[in-house]
Simulated assay, not measured.
Amino acid sequence: MAVEYVTYQGIKFPPAYNSEQSLRFTHKEFQVQDDDVFNVTYPKSGTVWMIEILSLIRSGGDPAWNRAVLNSTRVPWFTTRLGLESALSYPRPRLLTCHLPVQLFPTSFFGSRAKVDQAGCAWGLQYRAGVTGAKVVYTLRNPKDVLVSYFYFSKMCSSYKDPESFEQFLRDFLSGDVPHGSWFDHVRGWMEMKGKKNFFFITYEELQQDLRGSVRRLCQFLEQELDEGAITSVVENASFRAMQENKMCNSTLLPKDIMDQEKGTFLRKGICGDWKNHFTVAQSEAFDTIYQDQMGGLMEAFPWGAH
């Protein structure tokens, strides 16, 4: 059956989850609460990994919640039809996730403000003065690795068109003609928020290189104090192996007509640099040329440069 993407504000979205109405409501009418924490990514950039990390931090390192409740229930995809319904009934403080570019993010977010009251008890702790309202955790990843992972994911998930070839998917990715739009636009847009107190930027590569240090930084940003034992539990239960074995986040509970894991594995490799096994020299050079043109002065901000 042919896949017809939903289009909102010129960007394509998978049809099984999204509707133009849900996207418009999320963009224009969704009311952000000042103790909301948003997990924002471009697809295949560590979304599920960060969901597990944030859930574990929320639970003080106790993995029981992660092991018993689906990740989409713990951290609803609030732009989708079912996720929006969950988010609207979700008890505060909410953990929410999405792939939205900054221009389609809820407009109410940019007016959110800190509230210090009894209802403002986030992460099990009372807010302290000076907290800047709702927060965004934005994870980004080497776009070449994103592309490879996205290619394999699109072959498995029924809500995405099965790519004709890697070469064709590469051309579509570079032109932004893929669901959720251009990686370059997505990253440039969110990077404009860097330096604001309620935005936290981290790369997939940083998580790989120093997960413990990354968890500590996240705890500081979220004002959640965890002892070393709790941090160790977060690190252990957010490891790639632990996630592969956890049915609440590895998508094996999804029916075959939604996610066909006979065509691949949802949590496939979880490594950095796999693009080198897929790109030809010519493809890599063509990618680098467009990357340098699109990202300009931002290149030095990332650990992968143009490689």
Rank of each mutant, 00 (worst) to 15 (best):
Ala87Cys: 13
Gly189Leu: 07
Gly133Val: 01
Gly10Val: 06
Glu29Thr: 12
Gly60His: 08
Thr252Asp: 10
Ser214Val: 08
Leu226Phe: 13
Ala242Asp: 05
Phe200Ser: 05
Phe173Asn: 02
Asp210Gln: 08
Ala2Ser: 15
Tyr17Glu: 01
Val69Ser: 02
Thr139Met: 01
Leu174Asp: 03
Ala282Lys: 10
Tyr138Pro: 04
His278Asn: 12
Trp77Asp: 02
Gln261Met: 11
His278Phe: 13
Asp162Asn: 12
Gly61Met: 03
Asn250Lys: 11
Trp49Pro: 01
Arg24Gly: 03
Pro106Arg: 04
Val6Cys: 00
Leu125Ser: 13
Gly133Leu: 06
Tyr127Arg: 15
Thr97Ile: 07
Glu20Phe: 02
Gln168Ala: 14
Ala64Lys: 15
Lys144Gln: 12
Gly46Leu: 04
Leu104Trp: 03
Ala134Asn: 05
Phe173Ile: 01
Arg81Asp: 15
Phe105Gln: 05
Gly124Asn: 05
Thr252His: 07
Gly10Asn: 06
Met295Asp: 03
Met259Ser: 09
Leu70Trp: 09
Leu84Gln: 07
Gly46Asp: 00
Trp49Gly: 00
Asn237Phe: 10
Thr139Ala: 05
Gln208Asp: 09
Thr252Phe: 10
Trp190Thr: 04
Asp162Cys: 11
Gln209Gly: 12
Phe240Ile: 01
Thr47Ser: 01
Leu222Ser: 08
Val178Glu: 04
Ala122Leu: 12
Ile258Thr: 13
Phe266Gln: 04
Lys263Cys: 12
Pro101Leu: 06
Leu95Val: 05
Gln168Leu: 10
Ser72Gln: 14
Ala301Cys: 15
Lys155Thr: 10
Ala306Gly: 13
Gln168Thr: 13
Met295Cys: 05
Phe153Ala: 04
Leu70Tyr: 11
Lys28Ser: 13
Val6Lys: 03
Thr41Ser: 00
Gln9Met: 14
Lys144Val: 00
Asp288Gly: 13
Glu300His: 14
Ser182Ala: 11
Ala230Asn: 08
Leu54Pro: 04
Ser112Phe: 00
Leu170Gly: 00
Met50Gly: 02
Asn237His: 14
Ile231Trp: 08
Gln244Thr: 09
Ile231Gln: 07
Gln103Ile: 08
Ala286Thr: 12
Ala16Met: 14
Met193Gln: 15
Gly124Gln: 11
Asn71Trp: 05
Ala122Gly: 10
Ser251Thr: 04
Ile11Met: 04
Ile258Trp: 14
Tyr204Leu: 01
Asp172Leu: 10
Glu29Trp: 13
Arg67Glu: 11
Val146His: 02
Glu29Leu: 12
Phe279Ala: 02
Trp304His: 00
Thr80Pro: 01
Arg92Trp: 14
Lys256Trp: 09
Leu95Ala: 07
Glu228Val: 06
Tyr291Glu: 05
Pro106Cys: 09
Ser72Asn: 15
Arg216Val: 08
Met193Ser: 14
His99Cys: 00
Lys197Ala: 15
Ser86Pro: 07
Glu223Ser: 14
Val37Lys: 00
Cys121Val: 15
Asn237Met: 02
Lys12Gly: 03
Leu147Arg: 03
Ser233Ile: 11
Gly213Leu: 07
Thr107Gly: 09
Asn18Thr: 00
Met193His: 14
Asp34Met: 04
